[in-house]
């Protein structure tokens, strides 16, 4: 968890910039205002989280952890979860970055088109989109039927009930987060910088590598962390679109709650998933300033 702390330190730096240095000493007005808000979060979110940790160790006991880690299916799903989350993040980055770039650097018509596509997708329910992908990808679905009709294939392409399908669905749902994060930063880069670079004879690729990419890195980092962390918690979409091998930790947790009525076991799995998220953030904080990442979580400007 030290990683999260160092990450927090970065946020603190960010906060420090906003400090009103000329503030008069005396009653700390902002602390007074903020304390009730802090208490609300502590009670409404802190207590539930504490209960998860507490139950994992006491209901019936620490045996929950040995049970969980002794279960080969759970161990497998843990690795699968990481694998799918990494893949979804990479896919979101590869497809989302050009999207964000074009959205920031093109004419009015193109920008509107991309923005509308993004928003239409963003505002359609995740569950509904999951179902729609099923309609598109299944053996008797739109894609296979059309390809067959055109005579391009004889047997249906294996694009449902496997990792590919799970990834397609998850990428489509998570890419918008990355696009928004990157878009915010590219918009902030003055186009003149790029013009200048190219005016001085840089090729487009060189200009991109030396100007755009470095300046948009914080957005990339922010988007990737956001997508990755969200992906770790996904389970309904991979369950519906993937096969039994695409089993995510979230599904095991939900099952332990709903079917086995063993909240302690579910909580132990939850704590393990939480530790995983903590590790990711710690690792990220080592390589980049977390403040930049977090700053980009916002859509402003």
């Amino acid at each position: 968890m030290s990683g999260r702390d160092s990450g927090v330190a970065e946020v603190t730096d960010l906060a420090a910039v906003g400090i009103r240095r000329a503030g008069r000493p005396g009653i700390d007005f902002w602390t007074l205002l903020g304390t009730p808000a802090m208490l609300v979060v502590l009670v409404a979110f802190g207590v539930p989280l504490f209960m998860v940790v507490y139950k994992s160790a006491t209901d019936p006991g620490l045996v929950n952890y040995t049970d969980v880690m002794g279960d080969p299916v759970f161990r497998k799903s843990l690795f699968k979860t990481i694998e799918i989350a990494v893949a979804a993040t990479l896919a979101a980055l590869l497809l989302g970055y050009p999207y964000a770039y074009v959205m920031a650097r093109s004419g009015r018509w193109m920008r509107s088109f991309l923005l509308v596509a993004l928003m239409v997708s963003f505002w359609t329910s995740l569950l509904i989109r999951t179902f729609a992908w099923q309609v598109l990808l299944q053996n008797t679905g739109v894609i296979n039927t059309e390809l067959k009709r055109l005579g391009l294939i004889d047997t249906p392409l294996p694009i449902i009930r496997n990792e590919f399908a799970a990834l397609v669905g998850m990428t489509q749902m998570l890419a918008p987060f990355l696009i928004l994060a990157v878009y915010a930063l590219i918009r902030a880069i003055p186009p003149e910088l790029e013009q200048a670079a190219m005016g001085m004879g840089a090729r487009r690729s060189t200009m991109f590598r030396t100007v755009v990419l470095p300046l948009s890195m914080p957005g990339v980092a922010a988007g990737c962390v956001l997508v990755f962390v969200l992906a770790l918690g996904f389970y309904i979409t991979p369950q519906v679109l993937g096969g039994p091998s695409e089993r995510m930790v979230g599904q095991s947790i939900a099952e332990a709650v709903h079917a086995f009525v063993r909240p302690g076991l579910a909580c132990a799995m939850a704590v393990i998933l939480l530790l995983l998220v903590g590790l990711v953030l710690a690792a990220t904080a080592r390589f980049m300033r977390l403040s930049d990442i977090l700053k980009m979580g916002s859509m402003s400007e």
Binding site: R4, D5, V8, A9, V11, T12, A15, A16, G18, I19, R20, G23, D28, W30, T31, L33, G34, T35, A37, M38, V41, L42, G46
Partner: peptide, 16 residues
Amino acid sequence: MAARGRLVPRSLVATL
């Protein structure tokens, strides 16, 4: 509170 408060450590507020 995180940006301007002085009593509670900022890191605590941000973590929360």
